[in-house]
Amino acid sequence: MNGSGTSAALAIETSGLTKRFGRQTAVDSLNLAVPHGSVFGFLGPNGSGKTTTIRVMLGLAGATSGSVRIFGQEMPAHLRSVLPRVGALIEGPAFYPFLSGAANLRRLDTADRHAPAATRRRRIAEALERVGLSHAANKKVRAYSLGMKQRLGIANALLMPRQLLVLDEPTNGLDPQGTREVRSLVRSLAGEGTTVFVSSHLLSEVEQICSHAAVMRAGQLVAQGTLDELRRVGLTHLNIQTPDANAARAVLRRLGLEPDGTAAALDGQVSTPMNRPDLLPENIAAALVADGVRIRGFVVEAGSLEDRYVELTGEGFDVVQ
């Protein structure tokens, strides 16, 4: 599972992928590289272009410019040979409310000409079993809860053995238990060699199951790589506990760091981002001690992925339109 591979080792590759709706650019020059066998987290706040990217990847919408390759084959030109190998859950599940869960799966299975009719009944039963819906197979989807529909959507993606699963917000509407089950399902599929592309706005979800991730913001890719690579780029923080907080801040400023202001900080706590890579923590400690600052605690915190994510995508509702 190498972040930098040749295109042959990539399950999905987009280059310069752009999608415009009128004057709005939903996806802007996207260069994604999803390695074979990875569990790839596609992160970004709502409205950052994740679903549009997935729609273009799967040939539902045309790209304004740029290209998409799945298994090295150009899309949507090779849609017919590529898509039977891809299972997808796109922007939530969608079913005929007047049909049962099993009848809905049968319907979608007949749409795939590569899905053998002889094994249809068995494959549907197995897919339902795998998502825990066997008991509701003959219930009309109208009577399904949101979580059950979500499971049925995942079952649809698993009707055939797939090499690539594209799951758009797979845990939406699921209770915590269901979320855990989806996670373990994704892990087991990945263990069998299936490449899983999961889009999510929930960082915790991606952090727990993914080997790789990409972060979108306002249609643009702002980061991509293995989770470790993404963490490494994140800022580390230095937290110091000292009775001489003001003196400590003065020393840190002299070193070129930007410690937090006095008002906001807790008494006896000084915190600063380590925005000077050349400055080693031990040298900072030495400088502090040399200036007579009494140190009770000195902690270098590696940047969490969450910090990195927020840093990349903006805080709270401050989402770029």
């Binding site: 298994f71 040979s81 039977p84 190998r85 590569h114 053998p116 094994t119 068995r122 494959r123 197995e126 897919a127 079993e129 795998r130 998502v131 825990g132 499971r151 698993l158 009707l159 055939m160 053995p161 797939r162 090499q163 089950e181 989806v182 373990s184 399902l185 892990r187 087991s188 599929l189 263990g191 069998e192 060699g193 299936t194």
Partner: peptide
């Protein structure tokens, strides 16, 4: 959700993992 053998069309005696990895040319 069961994490065991999935909807596999290949022979059941094979380990699920290898069956899936062989899929590239299947369709």
């Amino acid at each position: 959700l069961h994490s065991g053998a999935g909807p596999n069309t290949t022979a059941g005696s094979e380990p699920a993992g290898s069956a899936r990895l062989e899929q590239p040319s299947a369709p």
